[in-house]
Each structure stands twice: as structure tokens, then as C-alpha cells.
Design a protein around this nucleic acid. Structure first.
Lengths: 129, 129
DNA sequence: TGAATGCATGAACAGATGTTCATGTGATCC
DNA sequence: GGATCACATGAACATCTGTTCATGCATTCA
């Protein structure tokens, strides 16, 4: 077994990106990349909700909301459960909630124009903006 | 001054979303929502890089890459610094790197079809899929 | 100064996206 | 059964998006 090499444990972001499929990662992020869907997910984070009530809560027409819900369903971001004549929607799992949380958290920073550290080795004296 | 009320410290995702501006959050996420830009950011996470070299690294034409870099610059996701006749690009700060990391992390889970917890109160017996 | 290099920009175009309108389907109530 | 409620779906449409092509601007070198 060769001479104890420094096995690289961490994969680069590039490697992980291609491993998972850049297109799929992009698709998942796109699902969060619209005001209407963000509102839908944000509302669902407060708890499950029927389709019509949901549409009303986010100020969308029923049809438009239903179309977006289908998209979110197809990407496994939300679940749908029939209950009487209603269909109750909910976030698929906590990962979705966390992803939304992270997106909000980071954008709140970007929005403030903050900048913690210049990121990456060699980025010396990058003089902000 | 009213009688000592239970001041709510944590804002809901919905409140934070509207406070920051749902459209702006969506725009920031959209910047990560395309294979080409994901590849650009992933490459930059390994360190700063000149424009042409960057385009080559991600397999894009110079012009297409430049257009996307402008978009990323406008959203403060990357920085540009002139160096001789090259322009060195880098991630704006560690928050961008973390956002990319989080996106990858979560999508790796979604990609596996995993499901940790049904998310949200009242999501009882949601019977997966 | 003129040529070449490195990058940015504008126009144009194909494809994707989100909404509305109209209609369809399934469940409940009379 | 028929009416109604709750939601889904398809088509049409306007808008947005990402790429290519051509060209422009700035910097370095001969």
C-alpha cells in the first residue's frame, strides 16, 4: 500500500459541483430565485398551509400559485397532502428551511454592503469597491 | 410604556424577506442559479483569476464569461482589480464562499433524496413521497 | 506610433420563465 | 344527481436570460 500519502479528504467546490451536476444545482437554486416562490416558501416555514390560503397569504392568483407549487413539488422542495378537498402544502424538510434561512442571512449581509474578509488566498489589497 | 410585553426577538422568514426586499433576495439567488455562473464562482473559490484564464477554466467564450462577470460584479458577488493588462477577479468575501458552500451542501442532500425531518409544526404523518 | 493583447460592451437572437385566462378534475354538500 | 368548492392543467403571451457576433477601449510592447 504505497508510502503513506497525504490523501486529500476535501473536494473542491468545482469538483463537488460537477459531481452533483452543475445544472441540477442551478435548478435547485433557481427554485428560490423568484419573489413569488420565496414568499411561498417563507410562508410555509411558519407551518403547513392549504393551497388557496397560501395563494391568498402571498398575494398571488390561485392559478399562478398552483403553477409555482408544482415546480416546487417537482424539485422536492415542498410536499403536498390531500386533506378533504384541500391540499396541504409544507416544506419538504428542514434542509429547505435552512437553505432559505442561509439565503436570507447572507443576503441581509450583502444588502448592507458589508464585507468580512476578502475571501481566498492571494486576494491581497483588493481595496473594496 | 405599556405593561412589560413578551417582545418578540426573532423575526419570521416572511418578515425578513419583505424587509430586505423579496426581489433583491431573488436577484441574489438568481446569480447562483446558472451552471456557467456556478462554475465561475466555484473556480474563484480556489483563488483569484484573470478573466481570460477564468473563461478558459470554465469552458466559456471570453465574451460570454465577461457578460456574466459583469452581472456578478453588479451584485457584489465578485471583485475586479486591474493588474497590468489583465483584470483579476475574486470572490467578494467569505460570505459568498459560504453561500456557495451551503448551496452545494444542501443540494447534495436533495440530490440524494434524503429527508431529515418533515419541517414545521403540524406536518404530522406527511408520509414521504 | 502602430500592432497586439486582454477585456468590455452593444445588438441580435433563441430559448426559458412567470403570469393570466379558460377549462378540467376530484371531493363535499344539498 | 347537480351544484359548489378547492385545486390542477394547458395554451397563449409578454418578458427576461444567456449566448454569439462584431466591435470598442485600454494597456503593453516593438
Amino acid at each position: 500500500m504505497g508510502h503513506g500519502a497525504d490523501v486529500r479528504i476535501t473536494a473542491t467546490a468545482r469538483e463537488r459541483l460537477e459531481a452533483v451536476g452543475a445544472a441540477d444545482v442551478a435548478a435547485a437554486l433557481q427554485a428560490l430565485a423568484t419573489p413569488s416562490r420565496l414568499r411561498i416558501l417563507a410562508r410555509l416555514q411558519e407551518g403547513p398551509c392549504a393551497a388557496t390560503e397560501l395563494a391568498d397569504a402571498v398575494g398571488m392568483e390561485q392559478s399562478a400559485c398552483s403553477h409555482q407549487l408544482r415546480l416546487l413539488r417537482n424539485l422536492d422542495l415542498v410536499t403536498a397532502e390531500r386533506r378533504g378537498r384541500s391540499v396541504i402544502y409544507a416544506l419538504h424538510d428542514n434542509h429547505v428551511a435552512e437553505l432559505l434561512e442561509q439565503a436570507l442571512h447572507h443576503v441581509e449581509h450583502l444588502r448592507l454592503g458589508l464585507r468580512d474578509a476578502p475571501a481566498g488566498p492571494g486576494a491581497e489589497a483588493a481595496g473594496n469597491r
